[in-house]
Each structure stands twice: as structure tokens, then as C-alpha cells.
Simulated scan of single mutants.
Amino acid sequence: MTVSPLPVRLEAVIFDWAGTLVDFGSFAPTKVFVDAFAQFGMEVSLTQARGPMGVGKWDHIRALCDEADIASQYQARFGRLPTDEDVTAIYERFLPMQLEKVAQYSAAIPGVAELLRALRQRGLKIGSCSGYPDSVMRRVIERAATEGLEPDCIVASDDVPRARPAPAMALKNVVELGLSDVAACIKVDDTAPGIEEGRRAGMWTVGLLLSGNAAGLTLDEYLSLDEAGRQEARSRASAELSPAAPHYLIDTVADLPAVIADVESRLSAGRRP
């Protein structure tokens, strides 16, 4: 039997969207979660809203409703703990609010358009996936295209039977991009479920410390930090992302070229994720 050779070079980079390519600090989903729960008489903090980030939005709301503080607020108001039907009701209130606001928050993260051009010049394909459903992703894609962000593949959370942390969205990229091996892919994400998605898919994984949900900084806040402030934010974000065991942790996607060089060196030496 002939054994196929291991990949010796990268074929693709698969990116998350909010907090990775667009929406520095991942504010579009978090602020709308807070507003949606408020319409049902519940107070949810931005910190609480960020907790389950990375999974599909219905699952995100389910996880929030399972938190003791939020569940007790719901029970006090409605006389019962939130059921799946109640979660769906909140999701149905959340979705149009998200559709209205998502483009407003989805500015490209500085340097992303230039990075994607550089990756293509290296012959790499650009994949992507998101915890947003397809209806929301269409709004994100429209704005992103005006800023030069046009991945070769885009997979929304409702394009697969099970979204993150399951590997389906990342693997759908592999299929649609016609790639030869999952080990020839890097998955880049700002959340633990997104990193876990990449690991379950057999890919190299990169966690983002400062541009996404884990640090929760606006772009202006990030730019105003001195090195001590950045290190504190890195430590906070690393504590959140490290349990998902990313192969690399970097500040933002601007630091990705060095990771790519290292992964290609490891591949050429016969290593896999």
C-alpha cells in the first residue's frame, strides 16, 4: 500500500470574523446580547455576555440562561426557569437587533486587508467561519467587501448541523476550498470554542489575545495601552484561551506571518498539529 506523503507546506488559513478580521474587541454580539436580555427585564453585564462567545448564538443564549444569576432573574420575572422555548424567544428578539447593528460594529481590524493580500501572494487560500447565522453574516460580508476583505470561503453557524466547538465549520472550509490535508491549515480565532473547533478539525490553531473577546478592548483602548497595560491584558486573555490548548498565542492577526513561517518549518520537518 502506498502511503500519501504528509503535507510539507500550508494550503490555507481559516479565520473567525468578529474579533479576528472585523469588530475589534468583538462588541457587535456582546452589546446586542445585553440589549436583548434587557427587553425581557433581565440585567446581563458585558462580561457575562462575553462568557460563552464563539458558539452559535442560540447556544450562546442558552448558556447565558443557564447561569445562576440570569436564571434566577428569569424565574423571578416569569415564575419558571428558562426553557428552550424561552431561549428561542430571546433569540428571535436578538436576531433582528443583531441584523440592525452588526454592520455598524464590523469595521475591519487594522492591517487585515493587507494581511489577506499577502497570504494570497504566498499562494494560500483564505477560509472563514463565524458564530453568526447566515442572515447576519450577509450584513458583515457586505461591509467587509467594501474594505477589501473577501475570503475564498465563508461558513456561517447555521450552514452546518453542529457549530463550534464541533469541527464542522472548519471542515466545511476544507471541503469547499478543495484542500488536501487538515494539517495544511491554520485556524485563527479569538475564543476558546473557536480554537477548540480548529483542534478538533486537526488543524494548527492560533489564539488572538488583544483584538478579540478575551481582552474586550476597543481599538482606541488597545492603542492607548502602555506595555505594562498590554501585558496585563495578554495575561487575562491567555488565562481564558489557554485551556483550549492553542498551538500559538499572538496579539492580533498582524503577528500571523511569523506563525506561518514557523508552521511551515514544522511541516517541512514532518510534524503535524
Rank of each mutant, 00 (worst) to 15 (best):
R266C: 12
S211R: 04
L210S: 06
Q39G: 14
L179F: 02
L171I: 03
A18M: 07
K125M: 10
E232L: 11
F33A: 14
G41P: 02
P273F: 07
A166R: 09
S211A: 09
G111P: 01
G19H: 04
E227L: 09
G229T: 06
V174D: 02
A183Y: 00
T83Q: 09
A156K: 10
V160D: 05
G198Q: 02
V87R: 07
A168S: 12
V136N: 11
D134M: 04
A68G: 07
E147S: 11
S45H: 03
A233F: 01
E11A: 02
L46R: 06
Q39C: 06
E11H: 00
V44A: 10
E85N: 09
T252K: 05
L124V: 04
V155H: 08
A214M: 09
Q104R: 10
P82R: 09
D220K: 03
L124E: 06
D134P: 00
E67P: 02
V160S: 10
V32F: 01
G79K: 09
C65I: 05
V175G: 10
L64M: 08
S135F: 03
P151H: 08
S235A: 14
W58Y: 13
K187H: 05
A107S: 11
Y74G: 12
P82N: 11
P5W: 02
V174N: 04
C129Y: 06
A68M: 02
I154K: 04
A28K: 06
D262T: 13
I186P: 00
E197G: 09
A107F: 04
Q39H: 09
R138I: 13
Y222W: 00
A113M: 04
E264H: 05
R236D: 08
L119C: 08
R271V: 07
G148D: 03
P96Y: 04
V175Q: 15
T20H: 01
L179R: 02
E232C: 07
L210V: 00
Y222E: 11
A245E: 12
C65H: 08
A49G: 12
W58K: 15
P52N: 10
A108Y: 03
A192S: 15
P257Y: 06
G41K: 04
D66N: 13
A254S: 14
Q48I: 07
G198S: 07
E100T: 15
R236S: 11
E221T: 04
V3E: 14
R120P: 01
R117N: 10
G25T: 05
W17C: 15
A156G: 13
R93E: 11
R271G: 06
Y74V: 12
V32Q: 13
P243F: 11
E176N: 14
G198K: 00
D190Q: 03
S4Q: 12
L46E: 15
P167I: 07
V253K: 05
G131Q: 08
G212E: 09
I109K: 08
A63Y: 06
R77G: 14
V3M: 12
S128R: 02
E240L: 14
D255H: 01
I250W: 03
S268T: 12
A245F: 00
E150N: 08
C65P: 01
